[in-house]
Amino acid sequence: MHSFTHALVSTADAAWAWAQASQEVISALAAVDSASAALTGLTADTAWESDGVRALNEKLVDIHQRAGEQAGLLAARQAEIESAAS
């Protein structure tokens, strides 16, 4: 009977760890999506001609692209977590 109880605890621990990992990835993805949306507006607002603003615009475009890449990586991690839980 003891080994059965231990198996249930291990399964519960694994389920809890999966749920926590899933929630953290979901939270990170929401944060990246939010930042990406804000960057979309900033890049549009800074698209006019001025050396300083052009440099800012280029940096914002770069950060926006990297945020999109991170969102893709996080979505892939979330899919891995979901498939591991199945």
Rank of each mutant, 00 (worst) to 15 (best):
residue 1 M to E: 10
residue 2 H to K: 13
residue 4 F to K: 15
residue 5 T to H: 13
residue 5 T to D: 13
residue 9 V to T: 08
residue 10 S to W: 06
residue 10 S to D: 15
residue 11 T to M: 13
residue 13 D to C: 15
residue 13 D to N: 15
residue 14 A to N: 14
residue 15 A to K: 10
residue 15 A to F: 05
residue 19 A to E: 13
residue 20 Q to E: 04
residue 20 Q to L: 01
residue 21 A to N: 01
residue 21 A to V: 00
residue 22 S to C: 08
residue 22 S to G: 10
residue 23 Q to E: 11
residue 23 Q to F: 08
residue 24 E to W: 05
residue 25 V to R: 06
residue 25 V to N: 04
residue 26 I to G: 00
residue 26 I to Y: 06
residue 26 I to C: 02
residue 28 A to V: 06
residue 29 L to H: 12
residue 30 A to K: 14
residue 31 A to L: 00
residue 31 A to W: 06
residue 32 V to Q: 04
residue 32 V to P: 02
residue 33 D to V: 07
residue 33 D to Q: 15
residue 34 S to V: 00
residue 34 S to D: 06
residue 34 S to N: 07
residue 35 A to F: 03
residue 36 S to N: 11
residue 36 S to D: 09
residue 36 S to A: 11
residue 38 A to G: 01
residue 40 T to H: 10
residue 40 T to F: 12
residue 41 G to N: 08
residue 41 G to H: 07
residue 42 L to G: 05
residue 48 W to D: 06
residue 48 W to T: 12
residue 49 E to G: 05
residue 49 E to L: 04
residue 50 S to V: 02
residue 50 S to T: 02
residue 50 S to P: 00
residue 50 S to W: 10
residue 50 S to N: 15
residue 50 S to I: 02
residue 50 S to G: 06
residue 51 D to P: 10
residue 54 R to S: 07
residue 57 N to T: 01
residue 57 N to L: 00
residue 57 N to E: 02
residue 58 E to V: 06
residue 58 E to H: 03
residue 58 E to N: 07
residue 59 K to L: 15
residue 59 K to D: 09
residue 60 L to M: 07
residue 60 L to T: 11
residue 61 V to L: 14
residue 61 V to A: 14
residue 62 D to W: 13
residue 63 I to K: 09
residue 63 I to T: 09
residue 64 H to M: 06
residue 64 H to R: 15
residue 65 Q to K: 09
residue 65 Q to S: 12
residue 65 Q to L: 11
residue 66 R to G: 04
residue 67 A to V: 00
residue 67 A to P: 03
residue 67 A to H: 08
residue 67 A to E: 02
residue 68 G to V: 00
residue 70 Q to M: 12
residue 71 A to P: 01
residue 71 A to S: 15
residue 74 L to I: 04
residue 76 A to M: 10
residue 76 A to R: 11
residue 76 A to D: 14
residue 77 R to V: 15
residue 77 R to C: 12
residue 77 R to N: 11
residue 78 Q to K: 12
residue 78 Q to Y: 03
residue 79 A to N: 04
residue 79 A to M: 09
residue 81 I to H: 01
residue 81 I to Q: 01
residue 81 I to V: 07
residue 85 A to L: 11
residue 86 S to W: 05
